[in-house]
Design a protein around this nucleic acid. Structure first.
Lengths: 214, 214
DNA sequence: TAGATTGTTAATCGATTAACAATC
DNA sequence: TAGATTGTTAATCGATTAACAATC
C-alpha cells in the first residue's frame, strides 16, 4: 500500500514488450524522431489501441497531438525490461546451443555478460569459446558467489538440467534460462524462462498439417 | 460447409498441445496405462477443466468414469501435431545454432529429417555436421524441389534471413522456422514460427527487475 | 448398481478493441 | 486556434474456470 503502482502487469503484455523494443530500436537506428501509435501499429501489425494500452501500464510516455518520442520510449522500455544495466550470467553445457549463446554478440550488446561456460567433459575445460572461458562443472556454486552471477542458462540434457538447476538455486540463483525439454520444479521465487525448441517445431508441424483448412 | 469440424482452434490451445504431448510421452515411457484429467492437471499444474476443454476441441478422447488411455491419447495428439509422419527440412546457416539443430537428435526422433545444411561460406561446403551434408547456398531452390523439403530453418543474421526467406518461398516452401531477430513479411499462406532468443532473455531480465515486487 | 470422471454448458474472468474527452 | 493523437473509459470478445448431467 506504500507505492501507488501495485497493479500486476499481465504476462501477455510483458511478452509483447521486447518486440516493441526491437521495432523502436530499428527506428532509433534510422534516426526517426517521433512515431504515433497508429504508424507503429501499421508497421507491427497490431492495433494502435493495444499499443497505447500496453504502454500505459507503465506510464504516459506519449504526448497528445504528437505521438511518442522514439528515443525516449526506447530507453523507457529498455529500463522496464531491465536491459539498461548489465546482468552477469553463466552457461552450463558446452554443446552447440551453449556455444551458440556464447557466440551470439547481440546478448552482450544488451548487457548480458557471459562470465563462464561450464561443462562436465574434462576435454573442454580450460579452453575458450568466443572469449568465454570453459570451466569444469564442479566449481559452479563457488563461481556464482564469487562473480555476482544473476542468470544461469541451462543447455544440457533434461536429467542433468534438473540436477544443475538444484545446485545453482542452492547457490542463490533466482533466474534460469532453461533450454532442456523439461519443466523445472523450483521454489516459486526462482524465475524460469523456458526455450523449448521441440515444442516450437511441433507448433510449426501442426500448422503445416492444418493449413489446407484455411 | 462440407465438413462438420470448421471451428478454428485458438492459438493458445495449440501452444499447449506440445506440452501435453511431452507429459503423455513420459507417462508412456513409464508404462502408465490410464490417467484422469485431475491427475494430469496436478502433474502439469493447470486445471483439469482446461485439459478437458482443450482436448475436446479435437474430439472425445476419454471415457466417463475411467479417464484417458495414455497411449491412445499420446498417439492422437501426435497425429494432431503432425508428428505421426516425417517432415523433410533443411537448415540455412551453419553457425552454432544451425549446427545445434543438426545435432539435436530429438527432432529426428519426432520425424523431422534434416536433409541438408546450407551456408555461403565456401570453407564449410562439402563437410558434414552430425551426418548432415553441408552445401553451398546457391543450390537451395533446386534442392528444395528435388528433395521434397517442407520446412526451412533460418539460422542466419537478419538481413540474410530475409533474403533467403524470399528465395525459399519462391521455391514453394510454406513453413519457415525463423531464428533471426526479425519479422519476416511473407505471403499469408506461408507459416512462420519464430524463435526469438533475445526476446526470451529480455522477458527473464524483466522478471528479475520486477521480482522484488512479489 | 454405485462411483468415478468425462463432455459440455454456464458463469466468470481477463484481454482486446472501440470510442472519445482531454490536451498538446 | 484547429488538428492530431494520446490516455482512459466503456463495449466487445475470447479464454478460463466451475458446475453438473451424461455415461462408462
Amino acid at each position: 500500500m506504500e507505492e501507488k503502482e501495485e497493479k500486476k502487469i499481465s504476462a501477455v503484455v510483458i511478452r509483447r514488450l521486447p518486440r516493441y523494443y526491437r521495432y523502436l530500436g530499428e527506428l532509433v537506428e534510422n534516426d526517426v524522431q517521433r512515431i504515433s501509435s497508429k504508424e507503429l501499429s501499421e508497421k507491427m501489425k497490431v492495433t494502435a489501441s493495444q499499443i497505447r494500452q500496453d504502454l500505459n501500464n507503465f506510464g504516459g510516455f506519449g504526448q497528445q497531438g504528437y505521438g511518442y518520442n522514439v528515443k525516449y520510449l526506447y530507453d523507457k522500455i529498455g529500463k522496464i525490461l531491465g536491459v539498461d544495466e548489465p546482468h552477469n550470467m553463466i552457461v552450463v553445457g558446452a554443446g552447440n546451443i551453449g556455444r551458440a549463446i556464447c557466440n551470439y554478440s547481440d546478448f552482450s550488446k544488451r548487457g548480458f555478460v557471459i562470465k563462464g561456460l561450464f561443462d562436465n567433459n574434462p576435454e573442454v575445460a580450460g579452453k575458450e569459446v568466443a572469449g568465454v572461458k570453459v570451466y569444469n562443472s564442479e566449481g559452479i556454486a563457488q563461481f556464482i558467489k564469487d562473480n555476482n552471477i544473476e542468470i544461469v542458462a541451462l543447455t544440457l540434457p533434461k536429467v542433468a538440467a534438473k540436477e544443475v538447476a538444484n545446485i545453482v538455486v542452492e547457490a542463490g540463483i533466482k533466474a534460469i534460462w532453461n533450454f532442456a525439454p523439461v519443466d523445472l520444479n523450483l521454489p516459486k521465487d526462482v524465475i524460469v524462462e523456458n526455450v523449448h525448441l521441440s515444442e516450437s517445431l511441433m507448433r510449426l508441424s501442426y500448422a503445416i498439417a492444418n493449413q489446407e483448412k484455411h
